[in-house]
C-alpha cells in the first residue's frame, strides 16, 4: 500500500495487477456516523422495549438478549452482512474494508469493534482520536489491530463528461500520457468550474498556447477534443 503525498489517497495493488484507490475517512464524518448509529440503536431498544415488555418474563428475557446484541454486535453484524457499513456509515457514504481493499470478515470486524472499548478511553473516543492522528490512514486502535480502514464508498470528483462541442485541432507538440491525462481531465472538468477559475488554470499554459485567460482555455479545449477523438 502506497500513500500519496498530496492527499490521503492510498493506492492498493490488487492481485490483478492494477491499483485501487482508497480514501480513508476522517474523525468528523465517522463521529457523525456513530451518532446516527447511536440514535438508531437507542430507537431499536426503545421500540423493542415497548413491544417486549408486554410479553412478561419471556419478553424481558428477549429484551435483555436484544440489548446484548445491539450493544456488542450491532456494528459487527452490519459490517459483515450488509456490505461493510452500519446504517450510520452508509448515510455518509462510508465503508469498512480490510487494508487490501477487500470486504471485512468476522474476525477483523469483531476485533475492531470489541477494541472500541479501548478506543473509547478515557472518555468520548479519546484514545481512538489520538491514534487516528498518529497515522496517515485515520485508523483508531481497533482498526490498527484488525488491519481495517474506514473509506469513502464513492469519492470520484469527476465523471467522464462529454466536452462542449467546438473545433478540434492537434496540439503543436507531442504530449506524454500523463500530460495528455491532465489536459483531458481539465477539459472534462470545465463545465463544473466558473469561467474565472478556468481562465486562471488555463493561464498556467500561456507559454505553450501563446494566449491568455479564456482564449488559452479555448485553445486547450480544442486540443482536448482532438486528443479525445470526440465526434463533432
Amino acid at each position: 500500500m502506497e500513500a500519496s503525498s498530496v492527499d490521503t489517497r492510498l493506492a492498493v495493488e490488487t492481485p490483478d495487477g492494477i491499483e485501487l484507490d482508497l480514501i480513508p475517512a476522517g474523525p468528523v464524518l465517522r463521529a457523525a456516523a456513530w451518532l446516527i448509529d447511536s440514535v438508531i440503536r437507542a430507537g431499536m431498544l426503545i421500540g423493542l422495549g415497548f413491544v417486549l415488555s408486554a410479553l412478561g418474563a419471556a419478553g424481558i428475557a428477549l429484551l435483555i438478549l436484544a440489548w446484548f446484541l445491539i450493544n456488542w454486535w450491532y456494528p459487527v453484524l452490519f459490517e459483515v452482512l450488509a456490505g461493510g457499513a452500519t446504517p450510520g456509515k452508509k448515510a455518509f457514504g462510508l465503508r469498512v474494508v480490510n487494508e487490501d481493499g477487500t470486504p471485512v470478515g468476522w474476525g477483523a470486524s469483531i476485533v475492531r469493534n470489541l477494541l472500541r472499548q479501548v478506543d473509547f478511553l478515557p472518555f468520548g473516543y479519546g484514545a481512538g482520536l489520538l491514534a487516528m492522528h498518529c497515522n496517515s490512514r485515520f485508523q483508531r486502535l481497533g482498526d490498527l489491530a484488525a488491519a481495517t480502514l474506514v473509506v469513502y464508498r464513492d469519492w470520484s470528483v469527476t465523471s467522464a463528461r462529454a466536452l462542449p462541442p467546438g473545433p478540434a485541432e492537434p496540439p503543436p507538440l507531442p504530449l506524454a500520457p500523463a500530460e495528455q491525462q491532465i489536459l483531458l481531465t481539465f477539459a472534462e472538468r470545465g463545465s463544473a468550474l466558473n469561467p474565472e477559475r478556468i481562465g486562471e488554470l488555463a493561464g498556467i499554459m500561456t507559454p505553450v498556447t501563446g494566449l491568455t485567460g479564456v482564449d488559452s482555455a479555448e485553445r486547450l479545449l480544442a486540443w482536448a477534443r482532438w486528443l479525445k477523438g470526440q465526434a463533432r
Binding site: P15, L20, G101
Partner: peptide, 27 residues
C-alpha cells in the same frame, strides 16, 4: 494511454465493486 481521470475513476469504481465481490472472504 493517458485517458482522462473521469474515465479512469469510472472504471475504478466498477472494478472496486467487482473486487469486493470477487475477493470477499467466506465466513
Amino acid at each position: 494511454r493517458g485517458y482522462s481521470l473521469g474515465l479512469i475513476r469510472q472504471l475504478q469504481s466498477w472494478i472496486r465493486d467487482g473486487h469486493a465481490l470477487l475477493y470477499r472472504s467466506r465466513p
